[in-house]
Structures are given as structure tokens and as C-alpha cells.
Amino acid sequence: MGRHHLGAFEQMLLYALVRLGPDASGLEIARLIEERTGRVISPGAIYAGLDRLAGRKLVTSRLGEPTPQRGGKRRRLYRATAAGVARLRTAHQALGDMARGLQPKLHSS
């Protein structure tokens, strides 16, 4: 797996960050993915994925304020960096190119 490759799960995280806009929490990302794909992702997996993206400077994060409904605990708020959005766009385009014209075939089986 190349250094520049974006995994499917990583793409999903970035899509979620783009949709949610800046300062999205891990919980919100997990909820969005579950809502849209039906996949339930554990917090451990979400943060591991975000760690990987952060390591490649595709996302940045900051610590938020503690809130009562979190039992007084802080949250970490993420946003996709410009590089992250660009990388997602490339991946999206690549997939789109691959998929173009295949609609009838994909839906026939």
C-alpha cells in the first residue's frame, strides 16, 4: 500500500469531515457514517483512522471545551486540511473515472 494511497475507510472519514465542516467530533463522524452507510464503527477505529490521517497532515484537530452531557470531558475537534480535501478530490475523481459508463452493468446483476 503506497504512501499516497487513501484507504476506503480513510476516504469515508474525509467525506464525513467535508460534509460536517470544521470542528467535527469523532462521535459526529461515527454517527454520520452509520447514518449513511449503516456501518457501526467503534470509537477506537475512528480515532485510529483520524490518527493516520493526521500523521499525513490530511486532517488537523484541536481540543474542545468540556460539556456536561459528556460527563465533563473534553472532545477533540477535527477538520480536513486543504491537502486532505485535495487528496479526497483526486480519489473521488479516480473512482468516478473508473465507474463512468458502468451504471447499466452495475445495476443489471
Binding site: L27, P66, R70, R74, R75
Partner: peptide
């Protein structure tokens, strides 16, 4: 550390 706080926070918020 921080990860513990944040994951616990997420779960509690949910």
C-alpha cells in the same frame, strides 16, 4: 491519556 478522556466522552455523550 487524552484519548481515554475523548473516547469516554464520546460514549457518554452518545
Amino acid at each position: 491519556g487524552e484519548r481515554q478522556e475523548i473516547v469516554l466522552g464520546d460514549l457518554e455523550e452518545a
